[in-house]
Amino acid sequence: MTSRVTLISPAMTPSLRRARFDDDDSIEDSAAVRAGATALSLPTAGRVFVSPSVRCRETAAALGLDASQETGLSGLDVGRWRGLTLDEVGAAEPEAVARWLADPGAAPHGGESVRDLCARVARWLETTGLADGRTVAVAEPEVIRAVVLHALGAPETAFWRVDVPPLAATEVTGRSGRWNLRLGPVLSPPGGASAP
Protein backbone atom coordinates (compact mmCIF):
# COMPACT_ATOMS: atom_id res chain seq x y z
CA MET A 1 0.00 0.00 0.00
CA THR A 2 1.46 3.35 -1.08
CA SER A 3 0.18 6.74 -0.10
CA ARG A 4 1.03 9.91 -2.02
CA VAL A 5 0.53 13.25 -0.34
CA THR A 6 0.86 16.43 -2.41
CA LEU A 7 0.95 19.62 -0.37
CA ILE A 8 0.37 22.97 -2.07
CA SER A 9 1.33 26.19 -0.34
CA PRO A 10 -1.10 29.12 -0.45
CA ALA A 11 -0.99 31.80 -3.11
CA MET A 12 0.62 35.17 -2.34
CA THR A 13 -1.12 37.46 0.14
CA PRO A 14 -0.24 40.95 1.39
CA SER A 15 0.81 39.38 4.73
CA LEU A 16 3.17 36.92 3.04
CA ARG A 17 4.64 39.71 0.94
CA ARG A 18 5.37 41.83 4.07
CA ALA A 19 6.57 38.91 6.27
CA ARG A 20 3.56 39.52 8.52
CA PHE A 21 2.28 36.76 10.78
CA ASP A 22 -0.96 35.61 9.16
CA ASP A 23 -3.88 37.89 9.89
CA ASP A 24 -6.36 36.05 7.65
CA ASP A 25 -6.04 38.32 4.66
CA SER A 26 -7.17 37.26 1.20
CA ILE A 27 -4.92 36.11 -1.62
CA GLU A 28 -3.96 38.75 -4.18
CA ASP A 29 -6.05 38.92 -7.36
CA SER A 30 -3.03 38.16 -9.55
CA ALA A 31 -2.19 35.17 -7.34
CA ALA A 32 -5.73 33.81 -7.73
CA VAL A 33 -5.38 34.05 -11.51
CA ARG A 34 -2.02 32.28 -11.35
CA ALA A 35 -3.50 29.53 -9.18
CA GLY A 36 -6.39 29.08 -11.58
CA ALA A 37 -3.98 28.74 -14.50
CA THR A 38 -2.18 25.86 -12.76
CA ALA A 39 -5.30 23.97 -11.71
CA LEU A 40 -5.21 21.50 -14.59
CA SER A 41 -1.70 20.39 -13.64
CA LEU A 42 -2.85 19.03 -10.27
CA PRO A 43 -2.99 15.28 -9.81
CA THR A 44 -6.35 13.60 -9.29
CA ALA A 45 -6.80 12.73 -5.63
CA GLY A 46 -9.10 10.55 -3.60
CA ARG A 47 -8.88 12.93 -0.64
CA VAL A 48 -8.53 16.72 -0.71
CA PHE A 49 -7.92 18.78 2.43
CA VAL A 50 -7.30 22.44 3.20
CA SER A 51 -5.91 24.35 6.17
CA PRO A 52 -8.67 26.45 7.75
CA SER A 53 -7.05 29.84 6.99
CA VAL A 54 -8.59 32.27 4.50
CA ARG A 55 -5.52 32.17 2.25
CA CYS A 56 -5.54 28.37 2.02
CA ARG A 57 -9.31 28.15 1.46
CA GLU A 58 -9.14 30.83 -1.26
CA THR A 59 -6.17 29.10 -2.90
CA ALA A 60 -8.03 25.78 -2.92
CA ALA A 61 -11.05 27.48 -4.50
CA ALA A 62 -8.85 29.16 -7.14
CA LEU A 63 -7.36 25.75 -7.91
CA GLY A 64 -10.88 24.36 -8.35
CA LEU A 65 -10.51 21.97 -5.41
CA ASP A 66 -13.50 20.81 -3.40
CA ALA A 67 -11.56 20.44 -0.15
CA SER A 68 -12.51 19.49 3.38
CA GLN A 69 -11.14 21.73 6.13
CA GLU A 70 -8.61 19.91 8.29
CA THR A 71 -7.68 21.42 11.66
CA GLY A 72 -4.59 19.20 11.80
CA LEU A 73 -3.22 21.36 8.97
CA SER A 74 -3.74 24.65 10.82
CA GLY A 75 -0.83 27.06 10.70
CA LEU A 76 1.47 27.74 13.61
CA ASP A 77 -0.41 29.63 16.34
CA VAL A 78 1.80 32.65 17.02
CA GLY A 79 -0.41 33.97 19.79
CA ARG A 80 -0.10 37.69 20.43
CA TRP A 81 2.28 38.15 17.46
CA ARG A 82 -0.52 37.49 14.98
CA GLY A 83 -0.92 40.36 12.51
CA LEU A 84 2.51 41.86 13.29
CA THR A 85 5.56 41.76 11.02
CA LEU A 86 8.68 39.93 12.08
CA ASP A 87 10.49 43.31 12.07
CA GLU A 88 7.89 44.79 14.45
CA VAL A 89 8.17 41.88 16.85
CA GLY A 90 11.96 41.86 16.56
CA ALA A 91 12.14 45.55 17.46
CA ALA A 92 9.81 45.15 20.46
CA GLU A 93 11.02 41.75 21.72
CA PRO A 94 14.44 40.91 20.25
CA GLU A 95 15.34 38.33 22.89
CA ALA A 96 11.99 36.56 22.51
CA VAL A 97 12.35 36.37 18.71
CA ALA A 98 15.92 35.07 19.01
CA ARG A 99 14.80 32.39 21.48
CA TRP A 100 11.84 31.42 19.27
CA LEU A 101 14.02 31.06 16.16
CA ALA A 102 16.72 29.07 18.00
CA ASP A 103 14.67 26.80 20.30
CA PRO A 104 11.91 24.67 18.69
CA GLY A 105 10.31 24.24 22.12
CA ALA A 106 9.99 27.99 22.78
CA ALA A 107 6.67 29.82 22.47
CA PRO A 108 7.30 33.32 23.86
CA HIS A 109 4.29 34.63 21.90
CA GLY A 110 1.94 32.55 24.04
CA GLY A 111 0.88 30.32 21.14
CA GLU A 112 2.23 27.04 19.81
CA SER A 113 5.89 26.04 19.67
CA VAL A 114 7.52 24.73 16.50
CA ARG A 115 7.98 21.41 18.31
CA ASP A 116 4.24 21.18 19.02
CA LEU A 117 3.40 22.08 15.42
CA CYS A 118 5.80 19.40 14.12
CA ALA A 119 4.25 16.77 16.41
CA ARG A 120 0.71 17.72 15.35
CA VAL A 121 1.56 17.63 11.65
CA ALA A 122 3.41 14.31 12.04
CA ARG A 123 0.27 12.78 13.59
CA TRP A 124 -1.81 14.06 10.66
CA LEU A 125 0.66 12.67 8.11
CA GLU A 126 0.88 9.27 9.77
CA THR A 127 -2.92 9.01 9.91
CA THR A 128 -3.19 10.12 6.28
CA GLY A 129 -0.53 7.56 5.36
CA LEU A 130 -2.81 4.73 6.45
CA ALA A 131 -4.96 5.35 3.35
CA ASP A 132 -3.90 4.05 -0.03
CA GLY A 133 -3.90 6.44 -3.00
CA ARG A 134 -3.36 10.17 -3.36
CA THR A 135 -4.14 13.02 -1.00
CA VAL A 136 -3.88 16.66 -2.04
CA ALA A 137 -3.80 19.35 0.65
CA VAL A 138 -3.51 23.12 0.44
CA ALA A 139 -1.54 23.82 3.60
CA GLU A 140 0.32 26.60 5.36
CA PRO A 141 4.05 26.92 4.59
CA GLU A 142 4.97 26.00 8.15
CA VAL A 143 2.88 22.82 7.90
CA ILE A 144 4.76 21.86 4.74
CA ARG A 145 8.07 22.52 6.52
CA ALA A 146 6.97 20.18 9.30
CA VAL A 147 6.01 17.46 6.76
CA VAL A 148 9.43 17.72 5.10
CA LEU A 149 11.22 17.41 8.45
CA HIS A 150 9.11 14.40 9.42
CA ALA A 151 9.62 12.66 6.07
CA LEU A 152 13.38 13.11 6.26
CA GLY A 153 13.71 12.45 9.98
CA ALA A 154 15.39 15.86 10.21
CA PRO A 155 15.73 17.67 13.54
CA GLU A 156 13.27 20.40 14.47
CA THR A 157 16.18 22.86 14.50
CA ALA A 158 16.13 22.62 10.67
CA PHE A 159 12.57 24.02 10.54
CA TRP A 160 13.58 27.55 9.52
CA ARG A 161 16.00 26.20 6.87
CA VAL A 162 13.17 25.00 4.60
CA ASP A 163 11.81 27.64 2.20
CA VAL A 164 8.27 27.16 0.89
CA PRO A 165 7.33 29.67 -1.81
CA PRO A 166 3.72 30.46 -2.72
CA LEU A 167 1.92 27.89 -4.89
CA ALA A 168 4.73 25.34 -4.51
CA ALA A 169 3.84 21.65 -4.65
CA THR A 170 5.70 19.32 -2.29
CA GLU A 171 5.11 15.58 -2.40
CA VAL A 172 5.84 12.78 0.02
CA THR A 173 5.27 9.17 -0.91
CA GLY A 174 5.33 5.98 1.07
CA ARG A 175 3.24 4.87 3.95
CA SER A 176 2.75 5.52 7.61
CA GLY A 177 6.15 5.10 9.26
CA ARG A 178 8.27 5.51 6.12
CA TRP A 179 8.15 8.50 3.81
CA ASN A 180 10.16 9.71 0.84
CA LEU A 181 10.37 13.32 -0.28
CA ARG A 182 9.84 13.85 -4.00
CA LEU A 183 11.47 17.03 -5.27
CA GLY A 184 10.08 18.94 -8.23
CA PRO A 185 8.84 17.74 -11.59
CA VAL A 186 10.94 15.68 -13.95
CA LEU A 187 12.37 18.02 -16.58
CA SER A 188 11.88 17.16 -20.22
CA PRO A 189 13.59 18.67 -23.25
CA PRO A 190 11.68 21.07 -25.54
CA GLY A 191 9.20 19.34 -27.81
CA GLY A 192 8.63 16.51 -25.31
CA ALA A 193 11.38 14.22 -26.68
CA SER A 194 12.90 11.94 -24.11
CA ALA A 195 16.42 12.59 -22.96
CA PRO A 196 19.13 10.05 -23.90
Rank of each mutant, 00 (worst) to 15 (best):
A98M: 02
A91H: 11
S68M: 11
L86M: 13
V78Y: 05
G64Y: 07
R80N: 08
A67F: 02
D87A: 15
G79A: 03
L63W: 09
R55F: 03
R99F: 02
V97P: 03
G72T: 05
L86A: 10
V50K: 00
E95Q: 15
R99Q: 09
L76Q: 05
D103G: 12
V89K: 00
V78K: 05
S53H: 09
G75R: 03
S53C: 10
T59E: 12
A98R: 10
E95L: 12
T71N: 13
C56S: 14
G64N: 11
L76E: 03
G72P: 10
P94N: 05
A62G: 10
E88H: 10
A61M: 11
R80I: 12
R55S: 15
V89N: 00
G75F: 02
E95T: 04
W100V: 01
V89T: 03
R55C: 15
L101D: 01
L76R: 02
L65V: 07
A67V: 04
R82S: 13
L65M: 07
T85F: 01
G79M: 01
S53T: 15
R82V: 09
V78C: 10
D87V: 09
L76T: 03
V78Q: 02
L63K: 11
G83L: 09
G79S: 02
G79P: 04
E93F: 00
R80T: 14
V89D: 01
G83H: 08
T59V: 07
S74I: 08
E70R: 06
G83W: 06
S68I: 08
P52S: 08
V50G: 01
E93L: 03
G83D: 06
T85Q: 06
G79E: 01
W100L: 05
A91Y: 02
R80L: 08
D87M: 12
G75E: 11
A96C: 06
V54G: 07
A61S: 14
R99V: 01
V50S: 14
S51T: 08
V50M: 00
A96M: 05
D87H: 12
E70P: 05
E93W: 02
L101T: 03
G64M: 10
T59Y: 08
S51K: 09
G90A: 11
R55Y: 06
E58Y: 13
G83R: 11
P104Q: 03
E93D: 15
P52L: 01
V97F: 01
R80Y: 08
V78G: 06
R57M: 13
L65Y: 04
D77I: 12
D103A: 13
E70D: 13
C56H: 09
E88N: 10
A98I: 02
A61K: 13
L86Y: 04
S53V: 05
A96E: 09
R80V: 11
L86I: 09
A67L: 07
V54N: 12
T71A: 15
L101K: 04
R57Y: 10
T59D: 12
L65Q: 04
W81P: 00
